[in-house]
Amino acid sequence: MIKNNARSKTSTIITIVVLAIIVALIYVLAFTGVFSSNLMRILLNICLYASFAVMWNLMAGYAGLTSLGNQAFIGLAGYACAVMCTTYGFGIWVAMLVGGLVCAVLAVILAFALMRMRGMYFAVATWVAAEALKTAFQNWKFVKEGAGMTVKIKPYPTNAEIFALAFGCFIVCMVVVYLLLKSKTGLGLKAMRDDADAASSIGVNIFGSRLLCYVVCGFLTGVAGVIMYISKGSIFPGGGFAIDWTIKIVFIVIIGGIGTAAGPVLGAIIYTLLYEVLAQFAGFTNIVLGIVAIVVIVVLPKGIIGSLENRFKFEILSQRRKSLE
């Protein structure tokens, strides 16, 4: 038993060291100009989509809250970024912090309004909330109504810097979710996913756990959203609050594997590459994504990672606690 523990401890340390080396390597490569600007753009998108997807997966895959309204966070963060930078002249760090906080506040409000609902009620209600925000921003003079806003920062960060931010954001998302699920809250969430009534009867605070997930999701989706709009340079309501964000996120998580740690990451890589291929068939992207997603739900209901894990009985970045026996 002691041997086992020691071995698992060493393997954890090795994993952390290997991951740290990879992270450092990617940063070095990014800033030394080894990556072409095209590759950098692809990597940037992978990081941001992976961040969005990891956060959606935290809610849908672990907390039992299938949201179709995470575009509310992305759009709101984009506007927070534009207002902070363009209207008030703050820098990117303030924009990221404010974007995250505004979204966290929105998450708290939505949580209290919507979290008594389950299943499709919750899903569509979050969508309605995002649409309500969209119509509000379309008619709000302060954010230039439907015309949208540009993001002005002096000096504008380079592609490498934006990528560095996105990559950092992605790492933070992974670590936060890992720690959250490994904590007591995560244990409760899993118990709840298996049997909500039993979990609540043994004292798992369902509302508190879900609220925490929702707020974390709001904050980090917001931060990633700010970075997304720094890289885009402009925002308008129809794009920022578009259901298309959620379409992409859902696709990513479904094909990667809902409720798995690595699924959203693999999904984001596949999505971004697929998107590059499909760029020449503009207009057909969503059709292909939709068909692929439906086929995956029918054939591999647990997604690629989930199915692999089932077949080979392993778990990437397992949040399972080592039992003490």
Partner: peptide
């Protein structure tokens, strides 16, 4: 998925 296949 069907909804956005149909839409596009």
């Amino acid at each position: 998925g069907l909804s956005f296949i149909l839409k596009d």
